[in-house]
């Protein structure tokens, strides 16, 4: 028991556990839509692009999160616009824009003499460095995202399955699409410090993909995904504490392990039925 509680002796570990739990849950809720609407590349693109925002905010002495959020939301809206207009193929436009923005971030960072470990922590994530203020921000944005998903649950579900019919029956599908992208951008923003730019897309996709293996209804899929995300976040942090490994990487590896367990379980159940 003391072994289990040992990490909680430290303030920063308590904050880290809360952050990992919230990020795991939020990413899994949004991840359900990401998987069903095939947005994972968009998620990856938004995360990478936001690095430019983080660096610019750092250089101007502003809050990282605000820089990341502004760039992430703008990127999300831009991607949505390009997608809706459909003149340029989506993967091409994301490929061009997000690598460009990411390179801009690296470029600006490399020109700084004093450059710097804490910017790198955004690349690979460092949940242990979450401050009290960071945590409040995660809680506040998390509450906004959760509220939006509750209010928009039914229209989002309808539009995820059949956007054309949803729109014909009076659901404002274009506005919903943009809203979903903005929520995705905010989720990514609050997750950056915990799991990092490079790995956040994994936390968006993997728990929901694992849940998709085990159920074929929407609400149970989201619930299971949340469970997997929470276990990955908290469990991953535990493991990283004892193995002295990178927290973000350990969280994502645990989620990946859960995914393969889910695939195995699905096969097992199928064989039992056959």
């Amino acid at each position: 028991m003391s072994y289990l509680l040992a990490p909680f002796a430290y303030d920063f570990m308590q904050r880290a556990f809360i952050a990992a739990l919230l990020v795991g849950v939020l990413c899994s809720v949004m991840g359900t839509y990401v998987v069903l609407r095939r947005l994972s590349f968009i998620g990856d693109g938004i995360a990478h692009a936001s690095f430019a925002g983080i660096v610019i905010a750092y250089l101007r002495g502003a809050d990282y999160y605000i820089g990341a959020a502004v760039v992430a939301v703008l990127t999300a809206l831009g991607i949505g616009y390009v997608h809706r207009k459909g003149k340029v193929s989506l993967d091409t436009s994301i490929g061009v824009l997000f690598t460009g923005a990411f390179a801009l971030g690296i470029f600006l960072m490399s020109r700084q003499r004093s450059y710097t470990v804490d910017l790198q922590s955004f690349l690979f994530g460092d949940v242990l460095s979450v401050t009290r203020a960071d945590l409040w921000l995660i809680v506040a944005l998390g509450a906004i995202i959760a509220l939006a998903v509750i209010i928009l649950y039914r229209p989002l579900l309808f539009a995820s399955f059949d956007p054309v019919v949803a729109e014909a029956s009076g659901i404002r599908a274009p506005i919903l699409d943009y809203t979903l992208l903005v929520l995705l951008a905010l989720t990514i923003t609050v997750s950056l410090q915990s799991v990092g730019i490079v790995l956040v897309a994994a936390l968006l996709v993997t728990p929901a993909a694992a849940a998709y293996q085990l159920t074929n209804r929407f609400a149970p899929m989201m619930a299971l995904a949340v469970g997997f995300g929470a276990v990955s976040g908290v469990g991953g942090l535990y493991v990283s504490y004892y193995l002295r490994s990178s927290s973000g990487a350990t969280i994502v590896l645990l989620a990946t392990l859960l995914f393969f367990l889910a695939v195995g379980l699905k096969r097992f159940i199928k064989r039992q039925r056959a």
Binding site: I150, I151, L152, Y153, R154, P155, L157, F158, F161, D162, A166, S169, G170, I171
Partner: peptide, 10 residues
């Protein structure tokens, strides 16, 4: 059931 969704406020 999705057919009901446009008819039900959140």
């Amino acid at each position: 059931a999705m057919g009901r969704f446009p008819r039900i406020p959140f």
